[in-house]
Amino acid sequence: MQLIPCPWCGPREEVEFHYGGQAHVAYPAEPAELSDEEWASFVFFRDNPRGPFAERWSHAAGCRRWFNAVRDTRSYELLAVYRPDQERPVTT
């Protein structure tokens, strides 16, 4: 069980958090203009890397705020956390 550093509350137990999958997948500006393939890609297809992954978390049992994190899906180590409006930071 991990400690997840909520950018607003500090490190908290993993059980307080809700996982939200890949980050930086914007809702399409004009869904009506998309082909079925493009729309399906938005609805169902997400990256699934083995390694650093920019993903969304919500501190559901805490401040209830969403944030983004870069986490290594092999070690589960959190390499960075940042606010939803920030760019993905460079991690090593």
Binding site: S58, A60, W66, P84, D85
Partner: peptide, 13 residues
């Protein structure tokens, strides 16, 4: 409520 919060915070801040 979670659904609303998610859209508000992550898509339409």
């Amino acid at each position: 409520l979670d659904w609303i919060e998610e859209w508000l915070q992550t898509e339409w801040p």
